[in-house]
Design a protein around this nucleic acid. Structure first.
Lengths: 218, 218
DNA sequence: TCAAAAGTGTTAATCCTACACCCATGG
DNA sequence: CCATGGGTGTAGGATTAACACTTTTGA
């Protein structure tokens, strides 16, 4: 062997909404490592890139393999390639991040090595994965403000109150319901279905559907 | 050989300002390919990643090797890894983008295979490099508006008129000098040196220096 | 004295934020 | 009939955009 080869791996930070302390909170599924290094630690789902698949396909495949999830949004985050990142050989990691809808996030894989954790209460992670999650959260927050990504965390039909809760969970602060409503309506990316959500102990909120098609950026 | 190996390459989109049609315009240095595939075509400077260097170091090294330039700003753009991108074997390309100061951009390397081209009048490029340049320009435009990256294209001391010209060249539209001045001053990222630029046939403009230290994002 | 860009002032339009208030439902 | 969130209205402040006007220099 003439030279030490560089291998390419793909990992994914997956975001979904789940209940935590009575409120919707951002969660992510982690997998427990079954071999060294960092055996037993929790880590981002990932694996080596195969020669016959694109980076994006690799991310999607191994997201499905390890967690059984199907993302509503998938986007490249960053590529990490410092010489020593804690692994044995030289690995360049291409990291993607994904959003899954609440129905998906509710699915629990029948696998003791996969578990959802709140984004703000993670266990110690393998490698430099904590830093990576930090970047992903930062990017998600930033993109919330100028895209319609939040729709990808909700079911097909949702109320503006639910949409607001998503934003509040991610941004970590309360938003004025009146102003939030106007801002969203002004973008023209949601349309009322005409139906209303019944069974709530207050005025029945209108249901909306996302009209935003796939993004522009990165 | 058990499996076709995936190789990692690093390329860089380098931006600098140069005169074009009597105005400052965004330019970038390209290298002419000296081997197949795409022999003779112009391409982004780049080369394989070595096992003992980080991605960022690789970008910096091969920017220096091929063009002799030293960037004032260097940032990762995106990683391209479709299965067939036009090369013979499977290559994953990590692309960086860089900004060089006007002094650097003025340097012409004594090499017939390196030349500066206006960003809006590029020759046909090898591989998918045209698309990559497009992304880089888009990112540069976006970051102009919420960072102080434009300082990295100018010399140490500059007038607000020059800074405005940089923005105009990149955004492709005129900006109101009065409002531009106020906006920049409000950010607090420039400080007057006290000196003025002499020799101009109008009121001598004050010279400023950037006080913004390294960035926050990406 | 003129042209040309520097630099200051002003105003109207727009956007953002906070908050008051009525509506419709289940308990 | 009350608590709760849905939904509408509105007033004040902050930000932005457009443009008039004065300043200072070299030619």
């Amino acid at each position: 062997m003439p030279e030490q080869p560089v291998t390419v791996a793909v990992s994914t930070v997956i975001f979904g909404l789940r209940e935590h302390d009575g409120e919707q909170a951002l969660h992510l599924p982690l997998v427990q490592r079954v071999r060294e290094p960092h055996l037993g630690r929790w880590a981002l789902p990932g694996g080596p890139l195969r020669a016959d698949e694109s980076l994006r396909d690799a991310a999607r495949r191994n997201l499905a393999d390890t967690t059984g999830l199907n993302p509503a949004h998938l986007e490249q985050l960053y590529t990490f390639g410092a010489v020593d990142r804690g692994a044995a050989d030289r690995v360049v990691s291409v990291v993607y991040w994904a959003l899954v809808r609440t129905e998906e996030a509710a699915l629990t894989r029948d696998d003791p090595h996969v578990a959802w954790y709140p984004a703000h209460a993670l266990p110690p992670l393998a490698f430099d994965h904590e830093e990576i999650v930090g970047w992903a959260v930062k990017r998600l927050k930033a993109k919330l403000e100028y895209t319609h990504l939040s729709h990808a965390l909700l079911p097909d039909e949702f109320t503006l109150g639910q949409l607001r809760e998503v934003h509040e969970a991610i941004l970590g602060r309360r938003l004025d319901p009146a102003n939030f409503r106007r801002r969203v309506e002004a973008t023209g990316t949601v349309a009322p279905t005409g139906a209303h959500q019944a069974g709530v102990r207050h005025r029945p909120p209108a249901l909306y559907r996302s009209t935003a098609r796939e993004e522009l950026l990165t």
